[in-house]
């Protein structure tokens, strides 16, 4: 008689182990396997979150171990939400997020559209395009500060060459109007290839037969693009927006290297501001409340977005 795979595994189980497991229900065995993961999740994610919520209602400062920790109610939340400087960092973050996403989606999709066509050197170009995202953000930030240098920077030289302006007459990272665009340009340069790869996967997943059927129906290329390509790539695009949105909401290293949040606080994004509050000013209770506000914001927006994504996928 032929044995099933489960029976074969059961037969192979050493006798002492089998004796110990005898009498345990499937549910208990399942819990035994899942428990270490749940424990880790609780210890690494859930416990710190609960602890942070608790701290957010106190005046704790981690650098003042001798001072009593007092419960301050909602004072930290109230101060954060009424602080104009914090709203300015929120605005700076929103500006950065909107423009990086818009540019990366448009350029990433356009590159994917081009790369998806068969031409000589296709693989080589793909490799060259994805190179920036393989670099460390700290390295990218550092060398772009040199590219943006008014006296010797290649970027300023190129702009000067194309427009006739004096390269040392403007500074991308020192000018209040240009600095927000300086960080957007670098992030777009670095992460557009990522969006391109996701779009490429989407484009390659569209069966050729659909286009062939459209050709038979004499649909124009423009019509094929809007009624076949875009709807079928849309879930991929939305996924790219989700990934890049979450990443850029917590953007830190690249901007710190490039502008340090300046000039003034023009490019001080929320993550940089939070780090200053928590680890430079040591306002632990205050920064915990700040972190919770950011967490709720990202979590809320991401949940709405994922629902929309699922809707698009189910169409």
């Amino acid at each position: 008689m032929q044995r099933t795979s489960i029976e074969r595994v059961a037969a192979a189980t050493p006798a002492p182990v089998a004796r110990r497991l005898t009498g345990l229900s499937d549910r208990v065995i399942a819990w035994i396997f899942v428990a270490p993961t749940i424990f880790l999740l609780l210890a690494v994610n859930i416990f710190p979150l609960i602890w942070t919520i608790r701290l957010s209602f106190t005046n704790m400062r981690v650098n003042r171990p001798n001072e009593p920790v007092e419960f301050v109610g909602l004072r930290n939340y109230q101060r954060i939400l009424t602080d104009p400087d914090i709203w300015q960092t929120m605005q700076a973050t929103a500006h950065f997020l909107f423009w990086t996403l818009a540019l990366q989606i448009v350029i990433g999709f356009a590159l994917a559209w081009l790369i998806n066509r068969k031409f000589r050197g296709n693989d080589l170009w793909t490799t060259i395009i994805v190179l920036p995202m393989m670099l460390s953000p700290a390295v990218v930030g550092n060398f772009w500060t040199f590219l943006y240098q008014p006296q010797i920077g290649l970027f300023n030289y190129a702009v000067g060459f194309l427009t006739g302006a004096d390269p040392s007459s403007f500074s991308m990272i020192a000018d209040v109007r240009l600095a927000p665009w300086a960080i957007i340009i670098v992030d777009t340069w670095m992460w557009t290839p990522f969006v391109m790869l996701i779009c490429l996967a989407g484009l390659r997943s569209i069966p050729a037969s659909i286009y062939e059927a459209a050709e038979c129906d004499r649909a124009s290329k423009w019509r094929q693009f809007w009624t076949i390509t875009i709807p079928m790539v849309l879930p991929f695009l939305m996924l790219a927006v989700l990934f890049r949105g979450i990443e850029n909401f917590k953007m830190f290293d690249l901007v710190v290297q490039l502008t340090g949040g300046g000039p003034g606080n023009t490019t001080e994004l929320t993550s940089i501001n939070l780090k200053r509050e928590a680890f430079e000013k040591w306002r632990t209770g205050y920064s915990s409340a700040y972190a919770i506000i950011l967490f709720v914001t990202v979590f809320g927006l991401a949940s709405i977005y994922v629902k929309a994504l699922n809707k698009v996928k189910s169409r």
């Binding site: 040392s168 500074s171 990272i173 000039p263």
Partner: peptide, 12 residues
């Protein structure tokens, strides 16, 4: 002094 007399790009 900053506006008139420093090298370009010396903002940090």
């Amino acid at each position: 002094l900053y506006d008139c007399c420093v090298p370009p790009g010396s903002s940090d």
